[in-house]
Nucleic acid binder design. Sequence first.
RNA 1: GCCGAAGUGGCGGAAUUGGUAGACGCGCACGACUCAAAAUCGUGUUCCUUCGGGAGUGAGGGUUCGAUUCCCUCCUUCGGCACCA
Length: 1039
Amino acid sequence: MKNYNPEKIEKKWQRYWEKKKLFQTKKTFDKPKYYILDMFPYPSGAGLHVGHPKGYIATDVIARMKQMQGFNVLHPMGWDAFGLPAENYAIKNKVHPRVATEKNIKIFKKQLGLLGFTYDWSREINTTDPEYYKWTQWMFLQMFKKGLAYESYAPINWCPSCQTGLANEDLEDGKCERCGSAVEQKPMRQWVLKITDYAERLLNDLDKLKNWPEAIKEMQKNWIGRSEGATVRFVIASEAKQSYNNYNGNSGIASSSPSGIPRNDILEVFTTRPDTLFGATYVVVAPEHSLIENCLPAYLRYVNIPTVCKPVGRKIENFADIAAYVEKAKHKTVLERSELQKDKTGVEIKGIKAINPVNGEELPIFVADYVIGGYGAGAVMAVPAHDDRDMEFAKKYGLPIKTVVEPITGQKKDNEEFRRSIVALVRDPKNNKLLSLNWGEKFGGNLFIGGGLKDGEDAVKCAQREIEEETGYKNVKLIAESEKIHHHYFAASKNVNREIEAVGLFFELSDEKNGGQNLTDKEKDKFKLEWITEKEADEKVKDPLHHYLFEKFVKNSAYTGDGLSVNSTFLDGLSTKEAKEKIIKWLEDKKYGERKINYKLRDWVFSRQRYWGEPIPLIFCPACKKSMENFLPQDISRKETISNGERLNPGWMAIPEDKLPIKLPNVKSYVPTGTGESPLAGIQKWVNVKCPKCGGPAKRETNTMPQWAGSCWYYLAYIMKKISNFPAYRQAGNFPISNYSKAFDWWLPVDFYVGGAEHATRHLIYARFWHKFLYDIGVVNKEEPFEKLQSVGLILAEDGRKMSKRWGNVINPDDVVKEFGADAMRVYEMFMGPFSQPCAWNTNGLVGTKRFLEKVWFLFDRVVKSKTKQKNDGIASSSPWANPRNDKITSVLHQTIKKVTEDIEAMRFNTAIAKMMELANELSKQETISIEHYSLFIKILSPFAPHFCEEIWSLLGHKKSVIFEKWPEYDAKSAMENEIILVVQVNGKVRDSLIAPAEISEEEAKKQALASEKIQKWLEGKEPKKIIYVKGKLVSIVV
RNA sequence: GCCGAAGUGGCGGAAUUGGUAGACGCGCACGACUCAAAAUCGUGUUCCUUCGGGAGUGAGGGUUCGAUUCCCUCCUUCGGCACCA
């Protein structure tokens, strides 16, 4: 055998595959289909590093195996080529982004070509191709027509460096994901997609995705962030009691204006704890709240929202303060507002009050930026006693704190004994230490002073008595008393379950007289008196009741858990769950609110003020808008409004389908204008058009779509690409999309999708959203696009950091291929470690896989044509129980076939390769190897090292590619070993191992184990108490 | 703070209905070949050891004849989310 020369072999076979068009997906419905998809790359100027192809190698291995198993495989590749980097490059170097992108694609394609992938390049797609984005635009228009796209003026994330608006998903720690600049909130005209209409389905259908990693599903769940609660409406008492009275008497009052903006004489809040409504002591609105927009003239300069409501502004007394605060909040970056500024700030809106519908109390209204404008109603009822944030704010501004929930600690148990008791905390004001009794580990460690209430005894008296009895201190001053706490626990000292109703009392020590005295010896034995610091108390006082009181008195924490309602009239005594139900019913009856589900997921800000993206195919006509407004019925129902894009966005109209695509025009400068308009706005000739409805002057939308748009549906594009070649559709043109239905039905869903976990909350949510929409309008007939998903673990650089130009630690696949060959690289990347885990690159590791391939290569020299002269493995043939059919090699080979087949299916490539290495090691011990064995080995190795195996396959005398071979079937009988190693344990420790026939009986195994000399020695003549036998594995003797 | 994943030799990692811990690979050591080196091949390689054994899978405890695997408590690392009412 000549030497293994990867460079020569790989070029040869790549050329052969291309010439024979081996990997073009066949147009046949005869075979079962298998659609395996990679996340297509963004062709950056940096080219590929060795980390990128990891996922592609994996899908290629699977694609090759599936093809050999008789599937019609679709394994395509394309380019997600719109996006900021190409545009920034264009600005810097004055090159059209298309030119730069095309150059990059060429480089990427060449690099991928080196690795011998089975991509069907005849289906290559590119999101920047007008023939492609024609459909992206078409799909956007369908959403527009269904009222799922709307124009919004709300403040959005604005990146000052990229000069564009960003979606929530594009932020990383409050910074722009692209450039790292701190993101600001800026009111801006934007197109927004109503992904929130699909929130419930996106969440619920996650349960149907059985073959998705739990971690990804969990991330999506958190991102969607469903929370159940209620809307509560507070009347604003701005016009004395009049509006409250009106409201009270008028049950049918609308809470929203036709445009969906809350009426500003009613303040709507969202809460997940409606049961605490009686505990509300103030109300907070976000700086972005419409209440403020409408009362602050300065704000109106930015925002032009039609308002049908009479402003309450004239009732507000402190315009200037509020305006200053709102202005300041607006300029805070997202980062400042959340992470750095945990410290809460706010301003009271003086002159108006919110009336608590449940008891008529007048509550002050604050504007504070700890309330987020875009979530819920943009306003909250503050219940400081039962919410951490409200508590913090209330403490800072001296607002009342009203307890309406009595805590329940511990778990309710059976046969509980009921007692009333007290827990007393005593603080020494001189050093802030707390008095505690250490009862020892057995009886709960450190506790505060506790005791049972005697009949008719007052809690304070009781506490003072207990303090004196147990510690000797007489002079203590009460500073605080808690609500009742219901505590369930097991009293170890008495051996009973108890429910106690406890009251906590907080004292300060007045003087230190008599401390530690008057204690009987018996008491001294039970516990030790200790003064502990607050920090020690936090750590050492573990009892839930005592720790709760510590949190309450010392840390002033809110109780946010469930419990029993108190101070809440008709809710008193109900559990949190019951109280929620009852109050919601009450609110609904009185029309003060209703049950409501909210999502953290925001609508998707879908426009970018940049050049290199799909133009949004809409036209705006001012005349049409005016005429629409004239005819707009005053009381149009919300439902009708939202189901129609043109009604929802007056003056905007969709470009007719036959005019698509709206091509991206050439511009002189790609530099963003920064005014909130894209560079396209400067091209008068392109912008100004005739209105297709009235013929008057109209303008095109100049914003473009975000980078994520093209990737929302690209898995469909691969199917559409060659559709005209399907016999049934040969005559059909591109439109309408129903021409593709049959092909979609055939190929969808994608059977297997492989890509980075970083897309869990963006691309994978967006794509699911689009797919569900396409399902709703009948384009596809499956509700989910991706049947099975697997995330790729990152390949880190040798220094353990991410591979990046910045660190200078990038490894280029071209160099690796040149030095070790593509096959060695493919095998190495699959062998490094578990596929989904991150793993550091180690060039030394490649030496091992190259050696492995060379070992297999030279095994060729030992291949013999006839299998009759096979020499059996020594042990096996000499053994009296030998099964003559099974030599050792046959059984190892079949075990390998089994393992490789199962491991590829389960993405455990590393162990599949390890097993093949074992097989190679086993084979190299043989003088001769049968051609049957060797051929089977080559077949199962071929998905990993395709060029290598093609070469050997042809050297074995085959004329056709190994890809046409049938995937080897595992034969259970052949895989059986003749002999097993029987381990013998004495008292759980391994003391001997015996070679025994595979089909040895239990009796015989035990007999042989006991007969062993070594075992006899360990038994020391004692009789075994018990002998455990595990079939085919071990005998365990207990003495 | 909340949610999720993971901690095993010098290194990447293997082993799950609880049954020989360290497969496979790298590295290292020794040997063969060589004038020599590289490459290649062979042998060894968890630690301690008085060579009988003993200890050992992040730490501590529990269940079991037997625990990397199951249960409890805790620690560390990584990933995601984060004032979401």
